[in-house]
């Protein structure tokens, strides 16, 4: 296909070995077992799995290693893992456990050169810059520590800079829209996709398939990460993909060849 299918990515935020979901990245509620959910979404046709350690930066570690390793035994699609990725060793350990990409936020904001070092060592294709954005007037400010701490960094400038340092993909989460199920921050997605050439994963706000379609058609996202939409079964993953297909958005459909 000359245009690649849009990827649908269930996002699993993990705290104490449990998938949790909040609103504006706070007020976390228990959703279920990470490996079981990953397997379920894999079987339903997810194109990729996104694991985020919800409290990693707080404890200065990523505790997802055993979960990633367990997931890799029965989930055969790409896995991206973020939260508390601070050193080259952290990246190596996650890749060896079966992850394909790592998502980096806090460590990159504290020291942008980390993006350069990581992409040089492991290749840009496995370094995802994760940005948590909060609207501030007509701009957006980047947050770190899972939306807890403002940084004063302008989101659009940061996205451009990180790509020039070697980030191979951007995961943009709107803190304002996150968990609200009222649609994405389309302006934010649009502004970033205008500025960078690397694939863009839109996250935060999906409550139905129409929201997903807007993020792709108006925002020009290359992939969409959803949590509430799938965790609360607002719409089944395969139904979302079928709706995208009907809207003439290229997707990977299951069982087409059967």
């Amino acid at each position: 296909m000359s245009q690649l299918p849009v990827r649908m990515i269930p996002r699993l935020d993990v705290k104490n070995n449990t998938v949790v979901k909040g609103i504006h990245l706070e007020g976390l509620r228990v959703v279920g077992n990470p490996v079981e959910l990953a397997v379920k979404y894999y079987q339903e046709g997810a194109d990729e799995i996104l694991y985020m350690d919800a409290v990693a930066s707080l404890y200065e570690r990523n505790s997802l290693l055993p979960i990633v390793k367990d997931t890799a035994k029965s989930v055969f699609i790409p896995m991206t893992v973020g939260g508390g990725v601070r050193t080259l060793d952290d990246i190596r350990n996650l890749l060896n456990a079966g992850a394909d990409k790592v998502a980096i936020n806090t460590a990159a904001i504290k020291r942008p050169e980390f993006i350069r070092e990581a992409s040089h060592k492991y290749g840009s294709q496995c370094i995802v810059l994760s940005i948590e954005a909060k609207k501030l007037g007509s701009k957006w400010e980047a947050y770190m520590d899972t939306g807890r701490e403002a940084t004063g960094v302008d989101v659009l400038e940061w996205a451009e800079k990180a790509v020039s340092l070697g980030a191979g993909e951007i995961l943009i989460t709107s803190i304002d829209h996150e968990g609200m199920k009222k649609g994405f921050d389309i302006d934010l997605i649009q502004e970033i996709s205008k500025r960078v050439e690397v694939p863009l994963i839109a996250c935060g706000g999906a409550g139905n398939s129409q929201h997903v379609i807007e993020a792709i058609q108006s925002g020009h996202a290359d992939a969409v990460a959803c949590a509430s939409l799938f965790h609360y079964n607002l719409e089944h993953l395969s139904d979302v993909k079928n709706k995208l297909h009907q809207a003439e958005i290229p997707v990977r459909l299951l069982g087409r060849a059967a």
Binding site: M1, L4, R7, Q125, G168, R252
Partner: peptide, 9 residues
């Protein structure tokens, strides 16, 4: 976009 990254036929 290079690398060619994603699902393809």
């Amino acid at each position: 976009k290079i690398p060619h990254m994603g699902w393809n036929e």
